[in-house]
Simulated scan of single mutants.
Amino acid sequence: MGYYAHVAHGQSELVLHRQPITKVLEAPGTDPHLKARLRLAQQARRFASRALYLPDNRSYTSYVALDRPYVVWNVFATPPYSVDAVRQCFPFAGCVAYRGYFSQAKADHHASELKAGGDDVYVGGVAAYSTLGWFADPILSSMMRWDDDELASTIFHELAHQLIYVKDDSSFNESFASFVQAEGLRQWRLSRGLPASQGRSEAMDDSFTQLVLDLRKRLRVVYAQGGDTAHLEAGKQQEIAAFRQRYAQWRDGQWPGRHDYDAWVAAPINNARLLPFGIYDHWLAAFEQLYRRSGARWPAFYQAVRELAHQPRVQRDASLQALLTGGAAEAGNPMP
């Protein structure tokens, strides 16, 4: 009950401090840079509803200036010799791989408790989140440090969650929203006369994610073999050390001169720190294929996604896997 009281208080603080973006723009003391970012957010918000057929409501029409760098901090946890999350279940969102706190101190305290109990833990700051339509989500000051593409595409992502959300299926929800984010951003850039692809950085991000997912697979194999704690710990540390070597080879061979992930790789790595990777793109290619089969028309695509959402989990995963398989086959045999 204490946790739910904390969440209720944190959300109510956001609601109470919302200001209409139009009011912030009209205020004589508003920083010119902030005005420019908020105008961009307004344009992206209109594009989301008019071009991407996302919910046309009061979300992202207001602004909240936070007194902290992130709006919430998520606490991830796994057993010491498992790459599967300690699940956290909530009445409306269902079960997810983390627990969120509006206070970094509270997040760190909870993480310390889990660590004392033997779990691997990781605390990550979050600049924006969706209440799934329960509240009119505001633009937050924590989002202002992003570049234009990330600001606009995050609005698309979070509105997609308001449109379609399935309890207890994070991979489905995040992959769907990530597809809307990526395709929405492509169309948004085209509408503004900009190139459709971001190119190199996006490719590097995707490739690094695959490196981390490969480490997670290798650790799963180590843990499945069993043995005493000393044996499991030795295997765990060997795989992490080997991952750092593979990373250095990958960076120097494919991305010479780039050091985007050096700090992440150099920091302590445990099972929990790997959890955020892969959630957002597990079924991404399946949704890309579904969009193509829907004639690249948003209303038809959303209807097809809703049909998937109503299927039982096992059937839904099978349908998504079939889309992946079909998409791979079409890629290998392109139409003339």
Rank of each mutant, 00 (worst) to 15 (best):
A8S: 08
G326W: 12
L114D: 01
D67R: 12
M335P: 01
A111I: 01
H109K: 10
D120I: 04
R87H: 08
E183C: 13
R58P: 02
L211K: 13
Q187D: 11
A160S: 08
P195H: 05
E233D: 10
S207D: 15
R39K: 14
N270W: 03
H310T: 15
H231D: 04
Q187W: 06
F179L: 11
Q88T: 02
M335R: 15
A48W: 04
Y302I: 07
F277H: 13
N57M: 05
A77N: 09
A182N: 12
Q198V: 12
R39C: 03
L54S: 08
F243G: 00
T325Q: 15
P20W: 00
D56P: 09
A116V: 02
L38F: 02
P32E: 15
P138H: 08
F135P: 02
S82M: 03
L284C: 05
A318K: 13
T131C: 09
S197Y: 15
K115I: 03
E113R: 11
A77V: 08
V7D: 12
S191E: 14
S294D: 01
R216S: 14
D262Q: 01
T325P: 01
L140F: 03
W188V: 02
G2S: 11
F287K: 15
S153P: 02
A152F: 00
F92T: 10
R306E: 15
D137H: 07
H109Q: 12
E26L: 14
A85Q: 09
G193C: 11
E158P: 06
A267K: 08
M144V: 04
Q42Y: 06
A196R: 13
Q225L: 15
A177W: 04
